[in-house]
Design a protein around this nucleic acid. Structure first.
Length: 499
RNA sequence: GGUUCCGUGGCCGAGUGGCUAGGCUGAGCUCUGCAAAAGCUCCUACAGCGGUUCGAAUCCGCUCGGAACCUCCA
């Protein structure tokens, strides 16, 4: 029996708005697509939260025994400033502003994105396709939609006919809207707009003479629209129907709605079984976004070099901070909360390092304690399988950490070996493999380690001689430069570098 | 205006009908030569008003407050 059979996953499907039992299309296999970044600028902390949420989902599904193909794209063309006639491609615009080739822009910000992902210990996806690598497929599906009569061409641009689609399907099924409301509200049409209806969206745009990014097509030189890339790439690597499609809440409409319309039209079937949307990171209750100017770059957060920050916080502190809330809730960002997270994470991290060193004294049954340990192990999985509830899982890990500290401080550990090992390995793997929370080295060099050990040995000697004045001085002086000595019960000493 | 969501103790943040969230902060105790770390104990909330129910933070209605989407945004 696999872990996923023992602890079946339930997740909130945005399509139904309900928590549903997770049943994969192919037993044991999961296909998951997540909308990646548009690489026209540095990723900010809000963007990072989404990728972190799906990283944990990916990690957990894998951990409980699924074979997961995780596709996360890079959008390097086609994301328009707006969908009106004069809409400019985001990459193209940045290239113009910075006087660089579009591919230079793409390269720079893709690398930044990857660096940030590594810093936060976010695993790379199985496949990371780019939109420009799939121009041919995007042209093909556009042709197909034209042939089906669900798209129309105007002056070298092709648009999706939402009203026509809505005659046989429900456009707005995901975001709970109906087409009449959409037509009534929203922005008015630009007079020179080529679209038949303002809710139609571009599949292919004609490139104006000054437009840098352009490819030949049956409709002349142009570039693909924003939504079509995800349909093409998800279909190509995961099939016409796949298990999970994720992304930030703000992509639900129109981006994901358009994906559903295109894919359903082109393939004759609904593309996705479970839609998962992660919620926004907020600052003072407002969404963190570039346009509002309240966004943080990860590097600013690490260094503390930002007007809203009192100090810097490590990547793992931030990762822990984000995992304390559920992915579907908004999370408010503040110095106070980060400070609390820093201390909380340190506690878990210390327990992680002691659990690695912990050894059994005697292999013998201890029913009462074992029952409690097994219960904690069980709850880790139950909580994670319940819509990937990292907050609840962390609560159990804190209990386990207390247990670990108690055991580590005990004279002897008497337990059945299999329970002991299971307990250790669950704490370890929940922390490191599932939640991706690893110990931070804190610049722990060999030379420094040796030097501190010289002082520790010296202090042991003077302590044995009851020369407490000197013993305290060694400790205080080290403390002053950021090294905290800790005296163990057995006369052993350890140290910790404070940030 | 339309669609959706939220309002939990000093702070952050889980929790969807009865059973302890958890972290941080604060107070006290234990251990320790003294610290630090660790362990234990305490501080017991659910925006307001009504309703359903034996019983509601949890369901329903209204009021107040806040947010997201409807235009690019993870």
């Amino acid at each position: 029996m696999t872990l996923y059979q023992r602890y079946p996953v339930y997740l909130t499907n945005s399509l139904s708005g309900k928590k549903e039992k997770f049943e994969t299309l192919t037993p044991g296999f999961v296909g998951m697509y997540v909308c990646g970044p548009t690489v026209y600028n540095y990723v900010h902390l809000g963007n990072t939260r989404t990728f972190l949420s799906f990283d944990v989902i990916f990690r957990y599904l894998r951990f409980i025994g699924y074979k997961v193909r995780y596709v996360r794209n890079i959008t390097d063309v086609g994301h328009l400033e707006n969908d009106a006639d004069e809409g400019e491609d985001k990459i193209g615009k940045k290239a113009r502003l910075e006087q660089l080739e579009p591919m230079e822009i793409v390269k720079r910000y893709t690398e930044d994105f990857h660096t940030v992902m590594r810093q936060f210990n976010i695993l790379p996806p199985s496949i990371e396709p780019s939109a420009t690598g799939h121009i041919v497929e995007q042209i093909n599906i556009t042709k197909k939609l034209l042939d089906l009569g669900l798209a129309y061409e105007v002056n070298g641009s092709v648009y999706f006919d939402v009203k026509k689609y809505n005659q046989s399907h429900h456009y707005g099924i995901l975001s709970g809207r109906n087409i009449e409301d959409l037509i009534e509200s929203g922005r008015t049409l630009d007079s020179q707009d080529e679209k038949r209806d303002k809710i139609d969206f571009a599949l292919w745009k004609k490139a104006s003479p000054q437009h840098i990014m352009r490819w030949p097509s049956p409709w002349g030189e142009g570039f693909p629209g924003w939504h079509i890339e995800c349909t093409v790439m998800s279909t190509k690597y995961l099939g016409e129907t796949f298990d999970i499609h994720g992304g930030g809440m703000d992509l639900k409409f129109p981006h994901h709605e358009c994906e559903i319309a295109q894919a359903t039209s082109a393939n004759g079937k609904s593309p996705v079984h479970y839609w998962i949307h992660s919620n926004m990171l907020t600052v003072n209750g407002q969404k963190m976004s570039k346009s509002l100017g309240n966004s943080f770059l990860p590097s600013e957060l690490f260094s503390g070099n930002h007007k809203l920050l009192e100090k810097g916080y490590s990547p793992m502190t931030v990762r822990f901070f984000m995992l304390q809330s559920h992915y579907s809730s908004t999370l408010d960002f503040s110095n106070e909360a980060l400070n609390a997270a820093e201390k909380g994470f340190k506690k878990l991290s210390n327990a992680l390092s002691s659990v690695k060193k912990m050894r059994l004294t005697k292999n013998s049954s201890n029913p009462e304690l074992e029952k409690s340990l097994l219960h904690q192990i069980d709850r880790c999985f139950i909580n994670m399988s319940d819509d990937f509830n990292t907050a609840k899982t962390l609560a159990v890990l804190f209990e386990m950490a207390s247990q670990i500290n108690t055991l580590a401080g005990a004279k002897e550990i008497i337990l059945s070996e299999n329970v002991f090992e299971k307990f250790k390995s669950t704490y370890l793997s929940m922390m490191e493999d599932v939640l991706g929370l690893t110990e931070e080295s804190g610049g722990n060099h060999e030379l420094l380690n040796g030097t501190v050990n010289v002082l520790i040995n010296l202090r042991k000697k003077v302590r044995a001689d009851k020369n407490f004045a000197l013993s305290d001085r060694i400790r205080d002086d080290l403390k002053a430069i950021g090294i905290q000595l800790k005296d163990g019960k057995d006369g052993e000493m350890s140290y910790e570098i404070e940030s």
